[in-house]
Write a protein that binds this DNA or RNA. Sequence first.
DNA 1: GCCAGAAATGTTATACAATATCATTTTGAT
DNA 2: ATCAAAATGATATTGTATAACATTTCTGGC
Lengths: 149, 149
Amino acid sequence: MDAELYLQRAASHCTAQGSRLTPLRRKILQLALAQSGLVKAYQLLHCLQAERGLDNGVVAPPTIYRALDFLVAHGFLHRVDALNAYVVCPHFACEHDGIMLVCDHCGQVQEVDATHSLGSLWQQCHQHGFQPHQRDLVLTGTCQQCQTA
Amino acid sequence: MDAELYLQRAASHCTAQGSRLTPLRRKILQLALAQSGLVKAYQLLHCLQAERGLDNGVVAPPTIYRALDFLVAHGFLHRVDALNAYVVCPHFACEHDGIMLVCDHCGQVQEVDATHSLGSLWQQCHQHGFQPHQRDLVLTGTCQQCQTA
DNA sequence: GCCAGAAATGTTATACAATATCATTTTGAT
DNA sequence: ATCAAAATGATATTGTATAACATTTCTGGC
Ligand SMILES: [Zn+2]
Ligand SMILES: [Zn+2]
Ligand SMILES: [Zn+2]
Ligand SMILES: [Zn+2]
């Protein structure tokens, strides 16, 4: 995934919505993009701290969490509740009903379109008067490689 | 839900599986049953501590988490990852593919059978070589009352 | 430009969640 | 009775997340 291109598109997306991809938020999104798979809050904390150097103050948790909340709210990241982690969404712009399959052994993330399967699921929720918060479904499990190994 | 009956059935279920619903595990399950909806680990910790009194030692987190792990593994509780919480499963014995609709505003929990909807979902996972860990799906959102209110 | 309100970030402190590790007790089988 | 496995107790630490308040930065109206 081309990080620079992603960041550009993310900025446009924010502008279009009247919100701002500030330098801090952009930097944290950039750090997330640099990860291969799962992204952890305190890992970002350490990365950001390292980038700033020892003299330019200390980065505190709220700095990270506020940025993460923003990025999740705008669809750039999905939260993986089961692992207290986040993953970059490669297609935040398009309305997608997808499932994210997260291997909690190797951390690999696989995105699968599931408009059909999820359609009936959301429908069933609404039949019970329930308004789900999630658009994507994040599942944890074991990927193919880790099953055989 | 009749707690005593539930506990009896839980004990039978354990015996049938060659595992033991020890006094500690039974007590914690009982405390969970006494809750109306969501159950939190540290809440149980405080309850158990209060029951034991000030002279009979201190209850430590591992005591609770080990019991919770057992109860989840045997299907008596479901874990709600998004809220770091647990809910009692009213029908642990029957093999059920259900969705749990958790209102993160009022805490109400609604369990809905979704064998069909989930069937195609799990199938799709397997088509991608992915073995999901969860049997039930736990969703957070807004319940009917909290939408109108 | 200047000001006032809003939004974002910094800062400090604390609450909440979960696990590692090792000691001790209980249990069930031989 | 003895032994090994399972369960619990106990201590300590790490990880995750938020509350509360101060300060800075941005933005729109004047
Ligand atoms: Zn996505
Ligand atoms: Zn894997
Ligand atoms: Zn259930
Ligand atoms: Zn509600």
